[in-house]
Computed example of a mutant assay.
Amino acid sequence: MPTSVIRAAIAVCRDALHWRDDLRTIFHAAGVSRQLYSRYDQPGISKARISRAIFDELHEQGAAGHTIQRKIIEELCGMRKPQADAPDQKAGAEALAELKQVAQEQRVLVDPDRAAATARQAAEKRRLQSLQERQATIGELRLEFLKLVQQDASQSAQRRGYDLEKQFARLFRAYDLDYRPSYRIAHE
Rank of each mutant, 00 (worst) to 15 (best):
I6T: 12
A8G: 00
A11W: 00
A11F: 09
V12P: 07
C13N: 09
A16Q: 04
L17G: 00
L17P: 01
W19Y: 00
W19S: 14
W19A: 15
D21S: 15
D21H: 11
D21R: 07
R24D: 13
R24C: 04
T25M: 08
T25R: 11
T25W: 03
I26S: 01
H28Q: 01
A30Y: 02
A30L: 07
G31S: 02
R34E: 15
G44L: 15
S46I: 06
R49Y: 11
S51K: 03
I54F: 02
F55W: 09
D56W: 08
D56S: 14
E57I: 00
E60R: 14
E60G: 02
A64E: 14
G65Q: 02
G65P: 09
H66C: 12
T67C: 10
Q69C: 07
R70D: 14
I73M: 00
I73S: 02
E74A: 05
E74G: 02
E74D: 01
E75P: 04
K81R: 11
P82T: 05
P82E: 03
D85G: 12
A86R: 02
A86Q: 03
P87W: 05
D88S: 08
Q89D: 06
K90H: 09
A93I: 09
E94G: 02
L96G: 05
A97D: 10
E98W: 06
L99R: 11
K100R: 13
V102H: 09
V102L: 13
Q106E: 14
R107G: 06
V110R: 10
A115G: 01
T118V: 14
A119C: 04
R120T: 10
R120G: 04
R120Y: 08
A122F: 00
A122W: 05
R126G: 06
L128W: 01
L131Y: 11
E133K: 14
Q135P: 05
Q135I: 12
G139H: 08
G139Y: 04
G139W: 12
L141C: 04
R142V: 13
L143V: 13
E144S: 04
L146A: 13
L146K: 10
L146P: 06
K147C: 12
Q151E: 14
S154T: 11
A157R: 13
A157T: 07
A157P: 10
R160C: 08
G161Q: 07
Y162R: 07
D163Q: 04
E165Y: 09
E165N: 11
Q167M: 15
Q167P: 06
R170L: 15
L171K: 04
A174Q: 08
D176K: 08
L177G: 06
L177F: 09
L177R: 14
L177Y: 06
D178F: 09
Y179V: 02
P181S: 08
R184W: 14
I185V: 15
I185H: 05
I185S: 14
H187T: 14
E188P: 09
